[in-house]
């Protein structure tokens, strides 16, 4: 009888602390992500959710850290990591087409100083088709809607063919059709055994879309499977006051519907 090897966690951070000016944005966060599946990072504004992703990717200076991706350092694991930045982090007036942006996801496979080969461009086109954007390949990115821009970013991440995706608010400001399309893509990634860690704002949809959750507010409040972790008590500890609203959101989420808007 052989013993199955322990699955390596896709991401482990230990004692991660980040401070921008004075007050820490993240304080001594230790967390191990599950080896696969869809993971939401949930917390109030300013809780350091985006900063956690950026710290893992070395995009912000860290005061202390220990980050392991598949048990490796970032440099060793870089080819297996995909990143989807916040849509608002770039200038969409930039003179580039949707296809040119998605093709950036193929750059690691092309390497430095080489023009993009035709085969890689076709892979980028296929990634664009996966998010239902094939007919917009040659459209300048500024002429796309917010949801379409988000899909272009998702296609670029897909083009990386990563095993672990770090996504910063993939659902921010998108229309319902785009939201459905993104969920579909995420589920497919999870079914292929990949891990997606996404910053997520909408408490109502978090339990529907994700299997695991990290509740974050500067410190890691709670982490684990959605069903046992995404409780009213833990949410209250994460968000502080505003309990009644939260309880409504959780109740609604458990009932599988969106909460009614506040009166």
């Amino acid at each position: 009888m052989s013993i199955a090897p322990l699955p390596v966690p896709a991401l482990t951070v230990q004692h991660l602390t980040v401070a921008y000016t004075r007050a820490p944005v993240l304080w001594d966060v230790s967390w191990t992500a599950p080896p696969n599946g869809l993971v939401a990072i949930v917390g109030p504004n300013g809780a350091g959710k985006s900063t956690l992703l950026k710290a893992v990717l070395d995009l912000v200076p860290r005061l202390s850290r220990e980050v392991r991706l598949f048990g490796l350092t970032l440099d060793q694991a870089r080819r297996r990591i995909g990143y989807l930045p916040q849509r608002a982090s770039v200038d969409w007036d930039f003179p580039a087409t949707a296809l040119q942006v998605v093709a950036q996801g193929r750059y690691p496979r092309v390497g430095w100083l080489r023009p993009l080969p035709r085969a890689e461009r076709e892979r980028a086109r296929a990634a664009l088709a996966e998010v239902g954007m094939a007919e917009f390949a040659d459209r300048q990115i500024g002429q796309l809607s917010g949801g379409q821009q988000q899909r272009v970013f998702l296609a670029r991440a897909l083009a990386l063919e990563a095993d672990l995706y770090l996504m910063d608010e993939p659902f921010a400001g998108v229309d319902a059709a785009t939201e459905r399309a993104i969920v579909e893509v995420l589920r497919r990634l999870a079914a292929e055994g990949r891990t997606v860690i996404a910053v997520h704002h909408d408490l109502a949809t978090a339990p529907q879309y994700f299997d695991h959750v990290l509740l974050l507010n500067v410190r890691a409040i709670a982490a684990g499977p959605m069903a046992s972790t995404f409780t009213a008590e833990n949410l209250a500890r994460t968000y502080g006051g505003r309990l009644s609203l939260l309880e409504r959101a959780v109740a609604a989420a458990q009932a599988g519907t969106r909460p009614a808007p506040p009166p």
Binding site: L59, Y83, V90, F94, A96, Q104, R156
Partner: peptide, 10 residues
């Protein structure tokens, strides 16, 4: 266009 993404993919 996107220095953060550039950094993330090396």
């Amino acid at each position: 266009f996107d220095p953060d993404f550039a950094q993330a993919i090396g």
